[in-house]
Design a protein around this nucleic acid. Structure first.
Lengths: 219, 219
DNA sequence: CTGATCAAATTTGTGCACATCTTGACCATT
DNA sequence: AATGGTCAAGATGTGCACAAATTTGATCAG
């Protein structure tokens, strides 16, 4: 009873895969995505694939140019900074608009994220760190029942996810991992106190700090 | 030098027209939009039109069902209430995140909106009121330079625009017009004082009051 | 009259052929 | 050698024919 039509399931799967590849920089900005090549890889024709690319274009991750190709968008630092400003505010709102009651199950999940983060401290890996950050972000948005807030937060997250991966190599990977682990630790503490607002504020504060670190790199 | 390709221009025009029809209830919730009929009306084939419908589906205004049709979505009151909660917060943020300096030109626009509102008081018209509200909303979002904030605000606006039109007939049209005019008047005063934050707070407050009025109807 | 069953009609999804546009290479001219 | 034009190659955009899915109505058995 997956209640999803086959076409929609495939659409969501392809969209997820391509978005992930873009956000993990498998397709760096400027990459030309050939519809024909992708259609061949996924075993479909161009038509369903164009539906996926259309959505990625609406999300601002690619731009389609007639006669040229589907080009992975570049990142304008100023716009990304403003997008981060909004993400920071939305992160705080998660604790105020329709917050979910904190259950033992939620705490267990947060604890699991901390374990994975600690494992990454032993064996740093920027790609694994980015992936864990993504999963943890979805966990964060799941703490509100406000569907629109979840959707907008995720939309903005995927638009800014690449900038962090671009900047991190210039920082110290071990340091960044440690900072992320401390966020996971603080977040777990707040949740254990059954204080969802505090947990949201912690995520908000870490976005602020992330903005500051990236500004320091730029300057 | 409109710098837009022909295909993109047509896409934007069709998207705007269909979105307007949905939000003004020309296509009430549950309406089945036939791709063939719309393609004939606009003088294209189904292919470009499906690109438009795909975006409307991503925006949550229609759902496409294989073998059935493209159906205008219904409105869940609870979700709409939560969406309004977020819209209220975003309206306040417009005054804090990258606000634009208030120029004479901006004040002139606000003054023009007030004139149009006053004209509507003389000759009430729910459709004209809804249209003026839409134009004024875009004016409001133009007061921030934060592109993401503008985009998310507009996305949420179009998702909730219909609920207001659905509820207003149960209220008094003249009263609603008068309330809107007072918002325009307050907004103009704040802008004349060169206080963009105050103008944003006024719009925020009016969203709060609108939520309260709609809750009163429901209860 | 009621219920089920099936076929026809209608609608969206897919694949393909072709139109349109961009780019770059090649070549003739100055 | 520099420059301008022309053309071919390759990419996305469009239109059409068909596949797949759903609904509807007719038809027939009970």
């Amino acid at each position: 009873m997956s209640e999803q039509s086959d076409a929609r399931t495939r659409f969501l799967r392809l969209h997820d895969m391509l978005r992930m590849r873009i956000c993990l920089l498998d397709y760096p900005p400027g990459t030309r995505l050939s519809e024909e090549a992708l259609a061949t890889e996924f075993g479909t024709s161009r038509t369903p694939l164009r539906r996926v690319l259309a959505r990625l274009e609406d999300e601002g991750l690619v731009v389609s140019q007639h006669g040229v190709g589907n080009i992975v968008t570049d990142i304008d630092p100023g716009e990304m900074a403003r997008t981060y400003d909004l993400r920071r505010e939305l992160a705080g709102l998660v604790g105020r608009l329709s917050p979910v009651p904190i259950t033992d199950e939620i705490i267990a999940k947060a604890s699991g994220f901390l374990d994975q983060g600690l494992a990454l401290l032993e064996q740093p890996d920027i790609r694994a760190l980015a992936h864990l950050n993504m999963v943890y972000f979805h966990f964060g948005t799941s703490l509100t029942l406000n569907e629109a807030l979840r959707e907008m937060s995720e939309r903005l997250y995927y638009r800014t996810a690449r900038i962090w991966l671009t900047v991190t190599p210039h920082l110290n990977l071990v340091d960044e991992t440690a900072i992320f682990v401390s966020e996971l630790r603080d977040s777990l503490s707040a949740l254990q106190a059954r204080d969802g607002q505090a947990a949201a504020d912690i995520r908000r504060a870490h976005i602020s700090l992330c903005i500051a670190r990236m500004n320091a790199v730029k300057g």
